[in-house]
């Protein structure tokens, strides 16, 4: 353990990258301000995968790595829809998953919003319509905002969340 702390003190912050950081810094500041004003400092997101390829989930997980560290801004991915303000929906709304997505949406307390993530829920990904796909998600839920990309990079997700915050 002592080795770890030695390294930590000797090397300092490893994830700084000036050109990249500048842009992120501005986004960060604005997200934080909006959340403070509109969500009393904490925005709780319930991520639901309705049949994606797992790339969107990997990018959402990447949001909590030391480069992006979304929790610093007051955005939390929560474990239950009952704790959530927003449902972040990825995937193609498969026939098998659709009833469960609607169940989860029911469980979110009002006021609630749905953000779709990636190209799948709007049928813009290369997947074609089959009998097992019930996307676009708009047919089943009221969608407030869409974050495009296949998959959207963590930076694009942050930008998308900011746009959503400006909208409401």
């Amino acid at each position: 353990m002592i080795k770890f702390w030695n390294k930590r003190i000797k090397l300092g912050v490893l994830t700084e990258n000036p050109e990249f950081e500048d842009e992120i810094k501005i986004i960060r500041k604005e997200i934080k301000d909006h959340i403070k004003k509109k969500f009393a400092g904490s925005l709780a997101i319930r991520m639901v995968d309705s049949g994606s390829c797992n790339a969107c989930e990997a990018e959402c997980n990447a949001l909590s790595n030391p480069y992006y560290d979304l929790e610093r801004l007051g955005i939390y991915f929560v474990a239950s829809p009952r704790h959530a303000d927003v449902m972040l929906l990825s995937g193609l709304m498969t026939f098998n998953m659709q009833p469960h997505v609607l169940d989860a949406y029911e469980q979110i307390p009002e006021p609630k919003w749905v953000i779709t993530l990636g190209d799948c829920p709007v049928m813009a990904a290369p997947f074609e319509k089959t009998f097992a796909i019930t996307a676009p998600a708009e047919k089943h839920l009221k969608v407030t905002h869409h974050i495009a990309g296949c998959p959207p990079s963590p930076k694009e997700i942050m930008k998308g969340l900011l746009e959503f915050l400006r909208k409401i």
Partner: peptide, 8 residues
């Protein structure tokens, strides 16, 4: 649950 019928 994620069955998208890729084969078809």
């Amino acid at each position: 649950y994620k069955y998208r019928a890729i084969e078809k």
